[in-house]
Design a protein around this nucleic acid. Sequence first.
DNA 1: ACAAATTTTGCAACCGGTTGCAAATATGGA
DNA 2: TCCATATTTGCAACCGGTTGCAAAATTTGT
Lengths: 335, 335
Amino acid sequence: MAVTLKEVAERAGVSRSAVSRTFTDGASVSDKMRRKVEKAARELGYSPNALASSLTTGRTKLIGLISDNFHNPFFLKAFDVFTSGLQARDLRPLLVNLTSMPDPDDAVQMLRQYSVDGVIVASSTVPPSFATLFEKANIPAVFAFARYRGSANSNVVGIDNEFAGAFAARTLIERGYRNIAYLGGPQAAVSTTDRLKGFSAEMASHGLGFTHTFSGKYSFQAGRTEMLRLIDQGDLAEVYFGADDIISIGALSALESRGIRVPEDVGILGLNDLEMAGWENINLTTIRQPIGQIASASVDLMVSLLDEPGRHPEARLFPCTLIERGTLKPLKIGA
Amino acid sequence: MAVTLKEVAERAGVSRSAVSRTFTDGASVSDKMRRKVEKAARELGYSPNALASSLTTGRTKLIGLISDNFHNPFFLKAFDVFTSGLQARDLRPLLVNLTSMPDPDDAVQMLRQYSVDGVIVASSTVPPSFATLFEKANIPAVFAFARYRGSANSNVVGIDNEFAGAFAARTLIERGYRNIAYLGGPQAAVSTTDRLKGFSAEMASHGLGFTHTFSGKYSFQAGRTEMLRLIDQGDLAEVYFGADDIISIGALSALESRGIRVPEDVGILGLNDLEMAGWENINLTTIRQPIGQIASASVDLMVSLLDEPGRHPEARLFPCTLIERGTLKPLKIGA
DNA sequence: ACAAATTTTGCAACCGGTTGCAAATATGGA
DNA sequence: TCCATATTTGCAACCGGTTGCAAAATTTGT
């Protein structure tokens, strides 16, 4: 159907190799030849078949982009940066939606079949099997928004979730809160559990206890439902650290719908700094995770991995900062 | 690097064709043979190379998914449905972010090189060149959330934007509003201009005039900025139809930040019914565009196109419904 | 103008599969 | 049991490119 190299060669009256060479840069072709071939190619509307060439070159320029979070708006930004970053480097994202796969390991299998050059896993609820499966398949993998295992044995880009949890606890304590609670995302998400771990350690180091609960998903509804449950159960804490903005915004909505004032009656601290957190009608105080930087660094790391196959696994962690808005009582000056 | 068909054939002591056949269903292989081959394949960890086979079969099962809207959360939902729908049908989405391409036509070129079986264009600001380019390249294309041209000469799935605009006007007029304005998205988006067209016609048929302005993008900030401009310019209308929820929510935020009450001082009507529109802290009255259905129908249509190449172009349009929330004054009973 | 060095070109094998066709094997009927 | 028929298997060519190698053409030096 499509025009092939052979047809171009015939029309230009040259060998197939010659045509191939004019379309691979760095190959030796005379100007005369190049012009002849380009003319024929233009006339025929030829464009080389990337997949056929991948067969011999061993590179498809396909990068698997795996995610399982299509409910948190956070990922739209991430997708934007991932895709434009990959494209800018002449790589193409093959998107995999883990949510709708019966067995997550099928994703690995599928990406193998499509000979992707590498994989970016953008998820914090990723099955632990992934790292080893990709390693066994010899596919370089970058885990974005994932857990940093201390001894970096896989490529990780993100924040230090334990640190972020501790930072949250410290922030709340500094604000004078004592009756503090942790409102997590899904228990299966390493982001939620690691943040809890750091949060817990920091609380303990101040001699404070706290309660914690989980929402089933990283979604508005999950956060809202969980907070409604807490309200109905009575005995609210003075402040909640929601392990993600989308959870926190859901919680905020639950509080509002029950007439509980924020931050006067209950405080909320989020994490992420979603665009929505800054909307006037939400105005959530939160800890900022630099989403764009993380996505962008993940692509950079992927490219390094491709250039330098034997490379040591590396973790790239970014700092978090507090974004002061309206859902926490202010820091008392001089307190 | 990876295990090939040939190695499996050697280990199983059979021909390469035999191995190929056990992995393509509908091929004639005896049970004995199948078992032998599967055993060898399992031992070697073989998985067939989808790209190599595409070379002879002419099908890659790759579907280009083109979009240029990575700011409107609306698309996250769309992506979710697109990707899971495609996966469920054994197709793989190759994502293209138009925003970051210097020349949109490059996208077509790229997708040709990767021999995609089809393309889903999810955008309402798509260059008109696309339809013809894909047709010339003989790649079936579905335009989701796009303009329905009356005489369907391309495959379109979405809503009837002119009708939706008229519906909006009618709704506002029924509510007793007379000083009405239209707050559009980007002028380049056919969704914005078509909605305006229908809106305009309906207003005219009631003998009413109205003003309209555009926001540069479909984004919160664009809507907010434009509404701030309108406020500062003085002379606000009684009600605004925001051509998209994200624009409307931005406008809402602008009004709130200036102490203008909604719906008492100014009314807002959105379009889309984003998840956020339903959040208590936003509570936007809006016209619902069935995003999931549209995405899902787009995938269905794509599959039909693949099964039946000579098929006539078709438009699938979905109805819109009003979602009553808190940003419009109520319909007076018996009025 | 000629030989040596350099560049350009084409041949042919290969990448990892598929598939039409004919040979080989299995099945059924009498 | 033997032959006709149906099924399974392997051969070899092909899909659309790439690439090592040697032959052909060009450039360089003198």
